[in-house]
Structures are given as structure tokens and as C-alpha cells.
Simulated assay, not measured.
Amino acid sequence: MDLYEYQAKELFGRHGIPVPAGRTAATPAEAREIAAGLGAPVVIKAQVKTGGRGKAGGIRPAAGPVAAEAEADRVIGMDIKGHIARRVLVEAATVPFEEYYAAFLVDRAEGGFLAMVSSQGGMEIEELAATDPDALVKLPIDPVTGVDADTAKLLAAKAGLPEQAAPVLEKLWRVLVAEDALLVEVNPLICTTDQRIVALDGKVTLDDNAAFRHGWDDYGERTDSLEDRARAKGLNYVKLDGTVGVIGNGAGLVMSTLDVVAGAGAGPANFLDIGGGASAQVMADGLEIILADPDVRSVLVNVFGGITACDAVANGIVTALELLGERGHRRPIVVRLDGNNAEVGRRILSDARHPAVRQVATMDGAAEMAARLAAGA
């Protein structure tokens, strides 16, 4: 789970890492009020989970409350690489004397942790690594010993950071460990004119598998998106940009189905894996989510029964269509059932005689029919 900048900085503050004073605003009027309370020039920063905010105009200085309101009005609602800025961080402007880069992350390739530190901050790390790889210090971190004061001093010295940066590096490591993070990154980490080390930005990725230890539901933005609604139902759903809704049991089968749909000349509208032991209720929940997507023109249900019994899938389809009522008649649903209890499942669908449901015996045939129906053929 990626955090917004303001959420990352809240974590930093809890671990004693200096950050600029600031609060988030959802309206220009709130931005003006926050700027007035800070009593200093501020920066208006779009809160989106992507990079390139500055180049897109999502980070704007404001000399005072009136300017803060005007700049927030420009930024709120801005589309930055497909991410809509629904709120801004209003933060006291901090002038850097020097800018650095610091990150700790899980190194999956080596099965451990990695520190990356540079005296050249403020630019994208990929660009830095390509143009001046020697400027980026990389140090594997022993999971047992971690980053103590001596290791932090070594990192700072090797990267050319001032000595006072070492305690901040040590605390950034503590954020990674204590918060079960996969990535903790500050770009830029700055030294001010009065020699203070401050995290001017923050990027944190948390390990979803550790959510039960932290109660991370508070980090979710309540946008009522299809992804949010699917997550609330425990579904593995990703929205795509096509017109054929796809449901399958097992990530491998769903990925294959996406390929087959594309091969039939249509674009899949989503990835939805109902899992290996899905119940009728899970099937009904999945179908409800997909039919709530206005981009979907047809639905392909592709299930190979193993742990998941095809009769449970068929009952789920029938149940979902009963609950949806008229909404369930608006788009055709192509169903391919094979494997465990497939004959029973097909009979359940045939007996239901729902006008939206078409049954096809093969995956290729089902994909071709779903593609034709999505195209209006």
C-alpha cells in the first residue's frame, strides 16, 4: 500500500524525523485557513500517489493565505498522470541549502534490505542512477543488525552527507522496520541554511500482509471506487480500460483469459480473481462489481472447477442476477464452466433461463462471443 506524502510525514513525525509544519486541505478555503495559521510563506502540494508533481504544476509556492487559496484552487482536481488531486498539503516553505536522497527498501532480488543514499537529491532516482551511478551509494543491510548509529554514520560519510544527517538515516530505518514498510524514501532530504536536516518529501510503501498488526484501514482514501468496493468484499479486482468484464478463479486462469479476450479483438475491462474456493456469495459479489462498471458491455465468466465447484459458481450467477433485477438484464454474460461439477453448473444456468446468460463450451469460443457482444455484433 502506497501512502500519500502527508501520511508518510505523519509516520516520520512519530519516529522523530523533522518535517515542515503543515496540514491537508480539501478545499481552497481550508488551504487559506491553514496558511493563515502557519503565518509564513507556504507551498501547496498535490496529494497523489505518483511522481512528477512538480513538472505537472502540482507543487506551487504561495506567499500568504490569499495566494494559498488561489493556488489550491488550481491544484485541487488536477489530473497528474491519471491521478486526481483531491486534497493538497499546505506546508510551511522551507529553503534548502543542500538536497540529498535517502531510501531503505526490501531488496527482493537479494532477499534482504538495501540502503540507497546520495548527496544529489531533488531529481528522480532513475535519472540519477543513469547519469551518475557513482553518486548513488548502495549498501546491503543485514536484517539482524539493521542500521545502528555507526552504520548510519558510515552511510552518511560514504554518500557525502553532513554528520548531522546520520541520526535521521537511523530513524528512517526504524520507520521501515517498525511500520512493516517495503520502501521508505525521502527525496529531497535537505539541509537548511541553519544546518537542520528536514524531510522535505516522503514516500512510504507498506506491506499489505502486515495490515492486521497496524489497523491500516485509516490510510485508505474513501473514494467509493470500484477497487474500494471490491476490496471491502475481499475481492482481488483491478480496473482496466476495456469493455469486456472478466471473472475467473485463479490468477493464472484470469491472466490467460485477459490474453484470449485481447486476441479476440476486445479489451478486458478488469482483472477479477474470485479465488480457488469461491462460494456462491463471492461469485455474486464479483458479478455485482463488474456490472457496476459503466464501461463494461459484456461479461465473460471463465471458471475451471477444482476446489471451486462449478455448481457454486452457477448458483452465484443466478443469485447475483436475482439481486440485480433489471440491472442484470442490461449486458450479456457469457459463461464457460469446466471441471468439478461442470455439468451440474451448466444445468443450473439452463434451468434459470436468464435472458442475459449465454453458455459456451470452450474458453476461446467464450472470449470470441464476449468480444462480439461488446462490439454490438
Rank of each mutant, 00 (worst) to 15 (best):
G250F: 08
C191V: 13
L11I: 15
A56K: 08
T151K: 12
A35G: 03
A320K: 07
E110W: 00
A181G: 13
L139Y: 12
A374F: 12
V282R: 12
M369F: 04
G276Y: 13
E126R: 02
A31M: 03
A278P: 09
S119L: 06
A40N: 03
A361R: 01
A129E: 01
I290T: 02
H83R: 10
N302T: 00
A85R: 07
E185M: 07
E124P: 06
K153A: 15
T192P: 04
G277D: 06
G250L: 08
H214M: 01
V95E: 15
D217E: 15
V75L: 03
A309P: 00
V244D: 15
M1T: 11
F104G: 11
E99S: 08
A284Q: 09
D338K: 00
Q359S: 02
D207R: 00
T308Q: 08
E288S: 12
R86E: 06
D228W: 11
G77L: 08
S119I: 02
L161K: 00
G51K: 02
V254H: 14
A278R: 04
A266D: 00
D311P: 03
G248T: 01
A35N: 06
Y100K: 05
L89I: 07
I76Q: 07
L89A: 09
S225T: 15
Q195T: 10
E368K: 13
Q47M: 07
L291Q: 03
R74A: 13
Q7N: 03
T223H: 11
V360D: 06
V299T: 13
D79H: 02
A262Y: 04
K239F: 10
K153R: 14
L200P: 01
E71A: 14
V299N: 10
S279D: 02
E91K: 02
N315F: 00
I197Q: 09
I84D: 03
T257V: 01
G252V: 01
A46R: 05
R53D: 05
L272T: 05
G37I: 10
R108N: 01
G306Q: 14
M78L: 14
P65K: 09
L183K: 01
R353M: 11
I290E: 00
Y237P: 08
R229V: 00
F97E: 14
V246S: 14
I141C: 09
V282K: 10
K203R: 10
A157R: 12
A251H: 13
M1H: 13
G316Q: 09
R60A: 09
R53A: 02
F113A: 04
G339C: 03
L176E: 09
